[in-house]
Simulated scan of single mutants.
Amino acid sequence: MTINRIFVIAKNVFQEVVRDRILYIIGFYTLIFGVSLRVLPEFAASTENKMLLDFGMVAMSVIILIVTIFIGTGLINKEIEKRTILVLVAKPISRSEIITGKFLGLSAVIAVLVTSMTGIYLLFLQIANIPHPTVSILIAAVFLFLQLSLIAAVAITFGVFTSSLLAIVLTFAVYLMGNITQDLVQFGRLSHNPIIQIFAQILYLILPDLSRLDLKNDAVYGLHALPDFTALTINLGYGLIYSVMLLAIAIFIFSRREF
């Protein structure tokens, strides 16, 4: 059954990542955030609460982003380089099942990391008696998971047809550009140059608008204490649809590769 095969692949990816001790990254996050609680107030006593709230969210995002990109780009590429992909394709498993299973396995890893780090983040804030908008932070964490899952789909897509190094560079580039797509459109309008405007619009249409899924500032400043569920639902749908489209592209390319 297709679902069972996808589940087995996803489970294997998750177990492989855990065996690589990647979950030690949770301890690393605990360490640096714990240190920040002691160090940051020394430099900015007047704004220490906002700085700590911001630092905790940013550190979480950056750490899991790095893990996602380095693992995601290698999920398929390493199989190809080591020729173990020949064993997989020889089995009664479709290539779409391989891509889907790899993606879901990596998404499970991301979910564990986001959940664990968010729990640690909230625990430290509670211990330090730092006022924080819990609802906003939880919403931001959910959308962080969605954003990083989308990046995982980008990483897997590039990993299907490029080398690991190039896939890493391209995925980082998509992440950086995806966070400023709206700024690119504004820049194109301000340039008054038709070519630049068209180019900026094309980039906006092709690249994922990751700012839709970035609610870190909202969490820090508590803007979603009473969330706009309509906007959140639209952005949630956007992230899911974009991830599915990327996986469809990855499956299309992978299905046409010869080994």
Rank of each mutant, 00 (worst) to 15 (best):
T171S: 10
S243C: 10
R95W: 01
K82N: 10
L75Q: 00
V154W: 11
V185N: 02
L148A: 13
I206W: 00
I80T: 11
G34Q: 12
L148Y: 09
E48K: 15
L88V: 12
A167L: 07
T181S: 00
Y29P: 13
A225P: 00
I3W: 06
I206R: 01
L146S: 11
L148I: 12
I3S: 14
G188I: 06
A173Q: 03
I80G: 01
T47N: 15
H224C: 01
L240P: 05
P92W: 07
P131S: 02
L210R: 02
I120C: 10
P133T: 04
V154R: 04
K216S: 08
S96L: 12
G188R: 04
A153E: 02
T84V: 06
A10S: 14
I71C: 00
T47E: 15
S61Q: 04
K216F: 05
S96P: 05
Q147S: 15
D20H: 12
L40T: 14
Y175G: 06
I71M: 01
S211V: 12
V17T: 15
I253H: 10
L176N: 00
L106V: 00
A248S: 15
T115D: 03
K102G: 15
T2W: 02
G239E: 10
L113G: 10
E97K: 03
I206E: 01
L123V: 15
L144E: 08
F70A: 04
M51Y: 14
P194F: 04
I93A: 05
A225C: 00
L236C: 14
G159F: 14
T2R: 11
N49G: 08
I234N: 11
T68S: 05
R189N: 06
T30Q: 07
D209I: 04
S61D: 09
L207S: 02
E16W: 04
G237V: 13
R21M: 13
G159W: 06
